[in-house]
C-alpha cells in the first residue's frame, strides 16, 4: 500500500518534494511503460529521472513545480531510449489491420455515424475527476488503446508536447501523427462513453 502523505488544508502535500517520490514513481512508471512497452527500460528511465531530479529538489517551492521537472527529465530519458532502440521507432508503421482502424466500426460507408455509435451528450464530466472509479475507467481505456496510439496520445495530451516535437522524436510525418491521434481520441471517447457515461450502476 503506498505511503500516505500528510495533506495541508488546501489539499496540497505538506511533505518535502523528495518525500513524494513513491507516489510520483508509480505515476511515472505507468507512463514510462506505456511509452516504452518494456518494464525494465521503464524502470531504468524512472530511476534515472528521479535521481536526476533529487539533485535539485531543494530549489522547488511546491509539488507542481517538482512534478513538472521530474516529468520533463523522464520525457528526455524516454526520448533518448527511443532514439537508441530503433525497434521502438516502429511507431511509424501504422498497420492496416482492422484492429488499428476504429473508423470502420464507427462510421458507415458514406462516412456517417452508425446509429448505435453516435456520441451522446456527456453529463458534468468534471464532477468525476475526484472519483477513483473514474480514473480506474480512464486507465482501463488508456491501457486498451493500441500501443502506438496510447503513446502519442499521452505525449501530446499528458506531457503536452507539440505535434512537431512528437514527429521529430518518433520520426513520424504530421499526417501519420494526425491519424494516430484521431484514432486514439475516437477510441478513448467511445470507451469512456461506454464504461463511464452509459453505465447506470457505475458510482461515477
Amino acid at each position: 500500500m503506498p505511503q500516505r502523505h500528510e495533506m495541508s488544508r488546501d489539499g496540497q502535500h505538506a511533505a518535502r518534494p523528495e518525500l513524494l517520490s513513491e507516489e510520483l514513481r508509480r505515476q511515472m512508471l505507468r507512463f514510462a511503460r506505456l511509452q516504452l512497452k518494456d518494464a525494465h527500460l521503464a524502470e531504468d528511465a524512472v530511476q534515472e529521472a528521479l535521481l536526476g531530479a533529487l539533485k535539485y529538489a531543494d530549489s522547488f517551492k511546491g509539488q507542481a513545480a517538482y512534478k513538472n521537472w521530474v516529468f520533463a527529465i523522464l520525457r528526455n530519458k524516454i526520448a533518448d531510449i527511443i532514439r537508441k532502440n530503433q525497434r521502438l521507432i516502429a511507431v511509424s508503421s501504422l498497420g492496416s489491420d482492422e484492429e488499428q482502424d476504429p473508423e470502420a466500426l464507427l462510421f458507415n460507408r458514406s462516412g456517417r455515424w452508425h446509429r448505435e455509435e453516435m456520441p451522446v451528450r456527456w453529463s458534468s464530466p468534471e464532477a468525476s475527476f475526484e472519483d477513483e472509479q473514474f480514473w480506474t475507467i480512464f486507465e482501463f481505456c488508456l491501457d486498451h488503446l493500441p500501443a502506438n496510439q496510447g503513446r502519442v496520445f499521452m505525449m501530446r495530451e499528458f506531457i503536452n508536447l507539440e505535434s512537431s516535437e512528437i514527429c521529430r522524436e518518433l520520426e513520424l510525418t504530421v499526417s501519420n501523427l494526425n491519424v494516430l491521434l484521431y484514432r486514439a481520441r475516437l477510441r478513448l471517447r467511445e470507451c469512456l462513453e461506454n464504461k463511464w457515461q452509459l453505465q447506470g450502476d457505475c458510482s461515477c
Binding site: 453516435m118 456520441p119 451522446v120 451528450r121 468534471e126 499528458f158
Partner: peptide
C-alpha cells in the same frame, strides 16, 4: 449533426482528463 456536435464538445473534455491524470 447532433452526434458530431457532442463529439466536438467531448474532445476538450478528453484533453482535460489527460491533463488531470
Amino acid at each position: 449533426c447532433k452526434g458530431c456536435r457532442n463529439f466536438e464538445q467531448q474532445l476538450p473534455v478528453i484533453r482535460r482528463i489527460a491533463r488531470r491524470y
